[in-house]
Design a protein around this nucleic acid. Structure first.
Length: 618
RNA sequence: GGGCCCGUGGCGCAGCCUGGAUAGCGCGGCAGACUUCUAAUCUGAAGGUCAUGGGUUCAAAUCCCAUCGGGCCCGCCA
């Protein structure tokens, strides 16, 4: 409805001020204070053009303007023209929200919509899929709170994109051939301990110990290197046993993910890349004149991508090695090939089999050597959620795509970068085991404990546990996504598990209140008169679709998270200012019930858009 | 040598992309509101050189340049 309102205003402004519709629409803004409900700043730009005072122009235009539907008054404040929305508008809005229900605020894919230009236009030009890859944690340790930020960012962006009307595929990359996995596997084989407890945690602890031995003992190093080789070749008992172990570890990691409602569609195993698309991908890279085999200098014997763009010019060593002199591929080398696959630029493909059914009812598939063909990949846009320290290799991937003639794909390769979560005086190191005490599971358990302690005593048993679990996951998700991704988060228990103020429980609480009232009093009937508190609340609710589309455009879920807080705050104000069930005037009561219901719907949808369940009771 | 990100009340964050009215929110502290639809809430007051210095503009937290402070990157590591 915000869009419709804007269009109506734009047309009125356009004819009164003699400007184009686009210009008029762009000038429509939401005033911060109590100047009006909607405003136009058109007089500033017009004043420049016509060399007149903007204040004077505002008065002229305001006198001329023909008020559209939904607008009851226009009045100037200095150079601004402020519009006031009619009670009829609010009534229409309340009805519209009630009618749309769960799809209120949901975007519709606009296909060939005019106005799509530039980077956005190229993938929005036709209906297509966005692949989002996250969190791609090494499968030999538990997620710590830093991994959780990646996963929650990826999951939330995926949800926002989906809610805004896009087709999204969630991919997880499993590096089952890395040195880290080999070290853990070596520990599993040689340290003589039996796996116990949650496997990811057990393997992580093995890894810390094995890594230490690896540093100190050359024999261990040789054995681990040998394991890496066997795993890469993919034949023999060690290779298959290690794959099984990795799968179990991933299953354990996903157990953690599910606590936070983080889901995936498909996981791509490194070992499967190596045995399927790798050869073709490598051949394609070698065709590229920008990729050369060095014969002299420090990179002699390596296959190297020459970075020629001016922005690389002043770097110490801008060229990126893709294949080492011993013939093995680097991360970047494999990543480029994987990226080619994501964009459907290779003929060869993976086979898939089912990995597990997730609590959301959807299957998560995985690549495997003897599975069936699948429809994964073939994206128009690829978003890789990776820490910002990897900006340079991600940039290299784009450059290589560009040099291969895949300009569009380069443009549609997005590195969604984020800063790390750190402790007050240190950062997380997998090898040194500094994550001990800061695993995602530990954070969650502590959160559940704190949430449980706050639940009213009349909620008992299973429901109490369920609510505590939901609140904990929501509170943690919220603190992880409410900060813009490029900002570093310093982890503190009390901040991460905050249950009051700017937090998920605050917004969920507002929803639970609204739910209780509509449960008792029903959906009501939109009134004819609206209190100021109702108007403020409804104006905010009106913006949901706009907020979601902005959040999707910017790939920043915190925009929706922030909006949830605003909406909840306005609901709580309404709740306090306007008694509903005890209201004696039946008409007023019905109207307030309708507003209450609309707010409940908007809150639930907004929370849902970033993966926070709107509880009915807490 | 070059590049990227951050710097907003005591603390934690929005706002910057796309310049516009009184810079929002939470925590903490202060003063209030539960016999009333859930006080995980609400109301009020206090607290700000938007890191610094220039520039562009009728208008700068927002755009440009420089400087300072913090984090990160430019490995045949992973």
């Amino acid at each position: 409805m915000f869009l419709q309102l804007k269009k109506k205003l734009a047309s009125a402004i356009s004819s009164a001020a003699g400007v184009s519709l686009e210009e008029a629409e762009a000038s429509v803004e939401l005033p911060k204070g109590q100047f009006g409900d909607v405003a136009t700043s058109i007089c500033f730009s017009l004043a420049k053009k016509e060399k007149k005072s903007p204040v004077l122009l505002a008065n002229e235009i305001c006198a001329k303007i023909k008020l559209p539907d939904w607008v009851s008054e226009a009045k100037t404040t200095g150079p601004y023209i402020n519009f006031f929305l009619s009670d009829g508008f609010y009534a229409a809005l309340v009805k519209e929200i009630e009618k749309q229900g769960a799809s209120f605020g949901k975007g519709t894919f606009r296909g060939n919509a005019p106005g799509g230009t530039g980077a956005e236009g190229s993938w929005k030009a036709r209906k297509g899929k966005t692949i989002i890859e996250f969190p791609s944690v090494n499968p030999n340790k538990p997620w710590h709170i830093g991994h959780l930020r990646n996963a929650l960012l990826g999951d939330s962006v995926a949800r926002v994109l989906a809610f805004s009307g896009e087709t999204v595929e969630r991919t997880d990359y499993i590096d089952d051939l890395g040195l880290q996995v080999a070290q853990s596997f070596w520990g599993y084989l040689h340290l003589g301990k039996k796996p116990s407890g949650k496997l990811d945690l057990w393997l992580g602890e093995e890894y810390v110990e094995a890594a230490k031995k690896f540093e100190e003992d050359q024999n261990v190093q040789a054995q681990v290197r040998e394991l890496v080789k066997e795993m890469e070749e993919g034949e023999g008992e060690n290779a298959s046993e290690c794959r099984k172990l990795v799968e179990k570890c991933v299953a354990a990691q996903y157990e953690t993910a599910f606590k936070f409602s983080i889901y995936h569609d498909v996981m791509i195993f490194e070992s499967d890349i190596l045995h399927t698309i790798f050869e073709e991908g490598m051949a394609r890279l070698k065709e590229n004149p920008a990729i050369v085999k060095e014969t002299e200098g420090k990179n002699a014997g390596c296959l190297v991508a020459k970075m020629t763009s001016p922005e690389f010019a002043a770097m110490e060593s801008p060229d990126k090695i893709l294949v080492r002199s011993d013939g093995t591929a680097t991360y970047t080398g494999k990543d480029v090939i994987f990226q080619l696959w994501k964009f459907d630029l290779l003929k060869s493909n993976f086979h898939y089999s089912e990995f597990m059914e997730q609590p959301n009812g959807k299957k998560c598939m995985m690549t495997s050597r003897k599975g069936k063909a699948g429809k994964f990949g073939k994206a128009l846009r690829v978003i890789n959620v990776i820490g910002m320290e990897q900006a340079y290799p991600q940039k290299v991937i784009k450059e290589i795509l560009l040099s291969m003639g895949y300009g569009k794909e380069a443009e549609n390769s997005v590195h969604l970068s984020y800063e790390h979560v750190g402790l007050e005086d240190s950062k997380f190191s997998g090898r040194q085991g500094t994550w001990v005490g800061y695993t995602t599971d530990e954070l969650y358990d502590e959160g559940v404990k704190r949430a449980e302690a706050k639940i009213k005593p009349d909620v008992e048993g299973d429901e109490r546990q369920k609510i505590a679990a939901t609140i904990a996951a929501a509170a943690i998700r919220f603190t992880m996504i409410r900060t813009t991704p490029e900002k570093r988060i310093t982890f503190r228990w009390d901040d991460a598990l905050s249950l009051e103020g700017d937090s998920a429980p605050y917004a969920i609480y507002a929803h639970a209140r609204a739910h209780k009232i509509s449960e008792k009093g029903g959906k009501g009937k939109a009134g004819k008169k609206f209190e100021p508190a109702e108007k403020e609340l409804l104006k905010k609710a009106m913006l949901l679709e706009f907020i979601v589309s902005e959040s999707a455009r910017q790939l920043r879920p915190h925009i929706v998270a922030d909006y949830c807080l605003d909406l909840a705050a306005l609901y709580n104000k309404f709740y306090n200012a306007c008694p509903i069930l005890s209201c004696e005037d039946e008409k007023v009561k019905d109207g307030r019930l309708a507003t209450n219901y609309a707010a409940k719907v908007a809150l639930a949808n907004a929370l849902g858009a970033v993966g926070i369940p709107a509880l009915e009771r807490m």
